[in-house]
Design a protein around this nucleic acid. Structure first.
Length: 482
RNA sequence: GGCGCCGUAGCCAAGUGGUAAGGCAGAGGUCUGCAAAACCUCUAUUCGUGAGUUCGAUUCUCACCGGCGCCUCCA
């Protein structure tokens, strides 16, 4: 089986071949830490988390970099408004992002570079581009990249096939007069009073100022990958679809003009948006939910992961009132099965049990194959999940028939659920509640033995009122809260 | 206006040139004192509409309808 990935550059799914066999440099555009990230942002980060995990599960040594954008219009304006320095404003949001990341079980990247920590490499990059003649100093003191001098410009977004309508997005700022061409983008912005006020200006040979947004990714990625492996091309570069143009297009222009290499990244992958009733989730539209909102509502992070993974990453996904609830129900099914597999008998004697155990082992083998086939196919998590649920059904059936919860089944299930990381979060049971529930269960047991079912049902109702569900099984009565 | 994506059961969502995975919800059954969980069965003759290519299309082509995204600092 070979991993195949969709490459935005070629608009095709192809075999993934890293620059150097066995290892992968993965650069993922991170959040701008001017505020809390919303779960639309996290859809992309969760997709990248799965990519990272699957690459590692496939045997690659992955070097994962995620930048944190700490200098841009939004961070500066927010700091200004709050009356603090850029650094002071941004730090709590960086910490909040890490906390959200941990809550959502996203594996930590190996590096979280911030633009302000890489001023020197960015200045070098600008100097290189100036020396090569693809950048110029505008009348306003800013440094711009001259698109006209980089013929390859537009390959990623197929710009050659389209007509740019300036201002069509309605998000264009006004100070565009200093550029030679309206499409040129800024590499280094001449310092403004607002920048100075929050400590967001640095001296450079070509004038005091601050880095443009696109510059940071090129400079940090090249710097870190060179330091790590001595390379100047990334294996995979990810982001959400809105970054294809202009962000990634501009990164390519800067980086390739500098390195002289045909590619900045060998594979470009982009996640689709999370929509809310048809419109993309966005701070601008006010239709957003943050990770901490979900956490406060008691949403299991695993349910959100499951919800996201049930839709392919290149497909728009709509969040509505029912979607998370449905994922929570599905999660419970997985959790119940996990518990059953973990506590079930390890060995069973007798022909019936043995036949069923063989069946369970067969299902486990199929799980491994189907799950891998799904993820190998451009990270088709919905297919992988279908394989997982097929295994749950087959597993329950086999266990019902007396199968032993054998090691091959446990290992395959742990492997698959571990890669997706979608088992319910183990909850710290409230000690007082547990004691009370156990006491009530004993009382009910006594009532049942006395065949006083009215009393037994009353106790069950009493527990249900507290959100406790009972399950009578051969091994006694089990209970579940919430 | 340019470029691109999407439209599959009540809801969410895979998918293939040869006749529709999975999840949620729902119905019936087995088990149970009754439940819960689990298991079994059922729930799209059909994949936005129309036409075309083909022995055959949900899957390819065209048109149309509907939704969405990007078009210079939005994950």
């Amino acid at each position: 089986m070979t991993l195949r990935l969709y490459n935005t550059m070629t608009r095709e799914v192809g075999d993934f071949v890293p620059l150097t066999p066995g290892r992968v440099s993965l650069y993922t555009c991170g959040p701008t830490i001017w505020n809390f990230a919303h779960i639309g942002n996290f859809r992309t980060f969760l997709f990248e988390d799965l990519l990272r995990r699957w690459l590692e599960a496939s045997g690659f040594d992955v070097f994962h970099i995620m930048n944190l954008t700490d200098v841009d219009d939004r961070t500066i304006q927010a700091a200004l408004k709050a009356g603090v320095t850029l650094r002071e404003h941004v730090e709590p949001y960086a910490q909040a992002f890490f906390a959200d990341r941990d809550y959502l079980r996203i594996r930590s990247a190996h590096a979280y570079p911030r633009a302000t920590q890489f001023i020197a490499p960015m200045i070098s990059l600008v100097e290189s581009l100036l020396a090569k003649g693809v950048a110029y100093r505008g009348d306003d003191g800013s440094v711009y990249f001259a698109i006209a001098r980089f013929p390859e410009y537009g390959r990623l977004s197929q710009l050659d096939q389209r007509e740019l309508r300036s201002g069509a997005s309605g998000r264009v700022s006004s100070d565009e007069y200093a550029k030679e061409d309206a499409r040129d983008f800024v590499l280094w912005k001449a310092a403004q009073p607002d920048d100075e006020a929050v400590g967001a200006a640095w001296d450079a040979p070509f004038g005091r100022g601050r880095p443009g947004w696109h510059l940071e990714c090129s400079a940090m990625a090249l710097d870190l990958v060179r330091e790590k492996w001595g390379e100047d091309v990334l294996d995979i570069h990810c982001g959400a679809v809105d970054l294809i143009f202009p962000h990634h297009e501009d990164e390519i222009a800067q980086s390739c003009a500098h390195t002289g290499k045909p590619d900045f990244a060998r594979v470009w992958m982009h996640a689709e948006f999370l929509n809310v009733r048809g419109t993309k989730m966005s701070k601008r539209f006010g239709n957003y939910t943050t990770a901490r909102d979900l956490q406060e509502d008691g949403t299991d992070a695993a349910a959100l992961r499951l919800f996201f993974f049930q839709t392919h990453y290149r497909q728009k996904l709509d969040l509505n009132d029912e979607s998370l609830g449905a994922a929570t129900s599905a999660l419970r099914r997985l959790g119940d099965f996990a518990a059953r597999l973990a506590t079930g008998p390890g060995t069973v004697s007798g022909a019936v049990g043995e036949g069923a155990t063989a069946e369970l082992e067969g299902a486990a083998k199929q799980l491994r194959e189907q799950f891998a086939a799904g993820l190998d196919d451009d990270l088709n998590a919905p297919r992988a999940l279908a394989a997982l649920f097929d295994f749950v059904t087959a597993g329950n059936r086999a266990l019902d028939r007396g199968a032993a919860a054998c090691a091959p089944a446990r290992d395959a299930f742990d492997w698959a659920t571990g890669i997706l990381d979608i088992l319910p979060t183990a909850r710290e049971a409230d000690a007082g509640l547990a004691t009370w529930v156990e006491e009530r269960i004993q009382a009910r047991k006594a009532a049942r033995q006395a065949r006083n079912f009215a009393e037994a049902d009353a106790i069950r109702d009493e527990l249900a009122a507290k959100g406790v569900t009972l399950e009578d099984g051969p091994g006694g009565t089990k209970w579940r809260a919430g």
